[in-house]
Structures are given as C-alpha cells and as structure tokens.
Design a protein around this nucleic acid. Sequence first.
RNA 1: GGGCCUGUAGCUCAAUUGGUUAGAGCAGAGCGCUCAUAACGCUUUGGUUGGGGGUUCGAGUCCCUCCGGGCCUACCA
Length: 572
Amino acid sequence: MARILITSAIPYINGIKHLGNLVGSQLPADLYARYMRGRGHEVMFICATDEHGTPAELAAAKAGKPVAEYCAEMWQVQDELGKGFRLSFDKFGRSSSPQNRALTQYFAGRLAENGLIGEVTEKQVYSHADARFLPDRYIEGTCPNCGYDKARGDQCENCTKQLDPTDLIEPRSAISGSTDLEVRETKHLYLRQSLLKDRLDAWISSKTDWPILTTSIARKWLHDSDGLQDRGITRDLDWGVPVKRGEEPWPGMEDKVFYVWFDAPIEYIAATREWADAEALGDEAWQRWWRNDKGAADVRYVQFMGKDNVPFHTLSFPATIIGADDNWHLVDYIKSFNYLNYDGGQFSTSQGRGVFMDQALEILSADYWRWWLLSHAPENSDSEFTWENFQASVNKDLADVLGNFVSRVTKFCRSKFGEAVPEDGTTGKRETVLIGELQRRLDAYQAHMEAIEIRKAAAELRAIWAAGNEYLQDAAPWAVFKQDPAQAAAIIRLSLNLIRLYAVLSQPFIPDASARLLTALGCEEAGWPDDIATAVAALPAGHGFAVPDNLFGKITDEARQDWQTRFSGTRT
RNA sequence: GGGCCUGUAGCUCAAUUGGUUAGAGCAGAGCGCUCAUAACGCUUUGGUUGGGGGUUCGAGUCCCUCCGGGCCUACCA
C-alpha cells in the first residue's frame, strides 16, 4: 500500500468559483484521490480557502462586513459547494487558521536563519483616502504611451505596455477614485530564491515525466532575462499573517503581513495540521505526511492546479521548502491544467458569464458536471464548454450507454427471473472473450489513472460501459430465453455482475450514481477488482437486488436552450 | 516586444515520440434488434493533418516561413 498526498490549489475566498476553476484543480484532484483510495492506498487529500490579501479586504468592505467575518461566511459557502460536488477532501482548511499563522511564521524564521531573507526598502503608492498602500494594479490613470485613461499601474491593457504606477498621468486609486496619493518608502522582506536558482533548475530538469505545461512555465521563469528574481513576501496590509521571525518579533516589520502567495502554499501543510488537530491527533499525524525525517519519505506528493498557479508551485514554494532545510517533502508530481472557456469566450466572474458552482448544482446534480468536466478536462490546451456538447455528451454517455444498460438488465431480470441473481446455466466462449476485453480495458483504465491522463481514463471507462451493451446485444438473452431459460439466466447473472463492476470502476468519476447502483445491488462493501474474471462472479446466484430508478434523466432541448440564455451574462 | 502552448473529419479529441493505408466518440447515412430511458448493436460516408517551403528512404510528428487561436511576462490571486 502506497501513501499518496494530494493537494488541490486553494481557491481564493473572494466569491463563488466557476466551472473552469473547478475543473482546473479541485475536481481532477478529487478524481485522483478517489481512485487511489479505491485502489486501497492511504490518501491524504487537502484543500482550503486562500483568504488573505487585498481582494478579500475589498470584497468584505463591499459586503459591509469585517474581513474575518466575511471570510468565515465564504468559507462555509465554499465548503458546502465542495460537498455538493462530492469533493472528498480529508480536510478543507483555511489559510487564516492559527496553524497556518504559526507555520508561515516558522518558515519565515527558518529562511531568515538560513540567509534566504533580504530586506529591501522600496517606494509604494499610499492612498490617504483609502488609508492603505495600493498594489500597482489598484492604481489607475492615463497611459503615457497610448493615452488610454484606464491604464493600471502594472500594465496598460490597451497598448500592453508595462508600467510603473509613477508612469501614470493623473493617477488615482482604483478603489475610491481618490487622487490624494503619495509615494512612500516602505521596507519589505524578500525571499532570496535567486540563491536557489541552480538547485531549483536541476530539480525541475529532473522531472522529465511532468506535463510540458508545468515544466515550460517553470523554465521560463528560471531563465527569463535575468533569471529567477527574488520575490517580496510581505505587504502593508491588515489582513494576513503578521510578520514574525518564528515566534519572535521582526524589528521594522510591525504592522505588516506576509504576502498571500507566501502563506497560501504553506496552508497545504497547515491544513493537514488542522486535520490532525480536529481529529485530536498529535503532531506526528500530520508530520508523517510532510517531514521526510518523520515518516514522509515514502509519500508520493501530487499537486493539481491551473496553469496560472504553476510558477508559485514550481519555484516559490519549493524555494520555501528547500530553504527551510528541515527535510520537508517536496512535491513529486505537478499536474497542471489549461483553461476551460465558456461558449466562445472566457468564463468571467466580474461579468457573471458562464456557470458557477452554486448555479450548476441548482440545475443538475454533481455527477453530470463531474462526468462532462472530467471527460473534457483541458489537459493539453484550453477547451471549451458549450451547452450543445454538454447535452450530447451527458445524454449519450450517462443516460444511454451506462444508465440504459443498467435499466435493460435489471428490468429484464425482474420480468423473467425476479429480483434476485438467477442461478442456472453456464457461461461459454462469448463470456470468455468479453472478460478478456474487459481485462485489457481495465488495465488501460488503471494505467491512465496512474498517469493522471484524465480524458483517456474517461474514454476507457466509457468503452467499458459500452462493452456491456455490445455483449448484451450479441448474447441476446431475450431471444435465448424462449428456447433456453437457463442460458439466459447465465447471461443475466453475468450482466448484473457487470453493473456491480461498473459501479466500482465509475466511483471516482460519478460517485453518486455509483453509490446508488451499489445500494440497489445490495453490496455497499465493493472493493476494487483484482481481475475481471473474479469480479464478474462476485454476486452469487440468489443475491437479491432492487431495480433502481433511471440513473440519469436526459437533458431536453428546451432545458438546454433555457440554460443557454440564462447563463449568457450578468448573473442575477 | 519577448517566451511558451496550440491548429488533425461538421463537433470534441487520439496517433506507441520519425515508420505500413492518420484513428475513436458524437453528429450524418444504411441495416439489424425489441430486453431497455425512441434506448442498444453492426456497417458506413467524412481528412491535401491551417498555407507554403525544406531535411529524410520515409513527416501529423523535425527545421524555416506565413496565417489563426490561447496563455504567461514576476505588486490580482
């Protein structure tokens, strides 16, 4: 039995995430976690909310609430949505937890001890009206290059020129619109990751089996212009982890917090600790997942994330982990995803364009979304959600191929033999051929799951479902029954066992349908098959079952058209 | 501007890393079946692999160039 540590990129606290966010990290991570648990491995699956930073403060202000209260409420919302999508986290933590505060401060202290923290005095724009320092992109003004009047302090969206806030003509706060701005000096801590560049470079180069998307982004940052730059890890904000050197005060850093990107990945560790604390377990319970010197040497650590997160996970966080020099377990595999687009454009949180997690669950249950999203995961390039494609895929795959198979087998059995696995009859060459095919396909399915080739795994699973229909058509128990009921019984006995097999194999993709099938078949304790021949004999003759309601209803044209208009923009 | 990814059948995607005649699913067409959610099965029509050039015995795959789509570019996270 292996030990697998799985983390999903942690979603930002600021609002409900859309399906593109879901398929880029949490959903594939859940698929992998469920599969690995199914195979009998010990899994620790961690996610959390990422709560610090300017956007959270602004969202809270907009909602008229203290930021801590706002975050607590939004955590609740995201937690429930995660449950709605059947995301099987062992812990869904919060980056604002005391555990993360302590660990973040600890890491900063270790990095300082090891000479990896520098102090840099820099100039930042302060807004009197907002009573805060403004990140570059929260300053707007007229672009000196093209005259665009809504250029941001980091870049002009119109002419794409890189800017400094001080380049802007008539700069103003993007928050309040105030022009009462002042450039102030402020001192910040920098993670001197440039010192670790060669080590990170060698490490990335050794990861030849990683997705090209992951390594190419990492290489770009390592080798671009001057190479890997040091990164500021503190901010002048109220909401965040207070800057401390371990447990000691950090002179000159009072009233500052760590940059959200410094504390967010550390939350992976902290959330594991939150889990251990919640379970009333000792430190060794979480440390055995993270510290190589405390039992984590045999852990395989896999991260899931959208491509925008890759630089932080391939460079900054590893620099933190390596720099602390405490035998922390580095990530072993990074699965990264492109973006899912929505019907010819991008999902847009600000414009309310596309389908958001709460809306999705209002119109259809989790399995529909899970199946479509995972079987179309944007692994190699950006992919696109269209309602036509969604309707066609879901109706065909789930309702026709899988759902109808279950329906035809169970209903035929009920009408001819009653609601128990029929005895009588023996299987022959046709069944041997089927078992051989299923075994080959199972091997392929497992190989794709191990390699986290999600679309390929989905295609193979679908082929496994389809094989049942092919077999049934070929064996034609409805015709055989007229001459030889015993032979028909053998065919149906096998087919009922196929349903059980499908429930087990499909669980990572469509857990609700899987559970309903196992309940209908009266076998909740269904383990992963060792081999097909044994698995298709698991349900013995005489074993009672119930005919389940139709597993999946179909999406009608009317519903599709309705949703199409409803989600085309501006959520209400 | 720079870098990276990408372009394969009407649609969504494969192609053992340079090797026979480029394959699946959906959609379309035909046939079959009647157990089943008008479901299922079988057969089948679709491709000058974005255009052009080059290397090679051989190119979807490597090189050059042009065209299209996308992402990143370090203070949003």
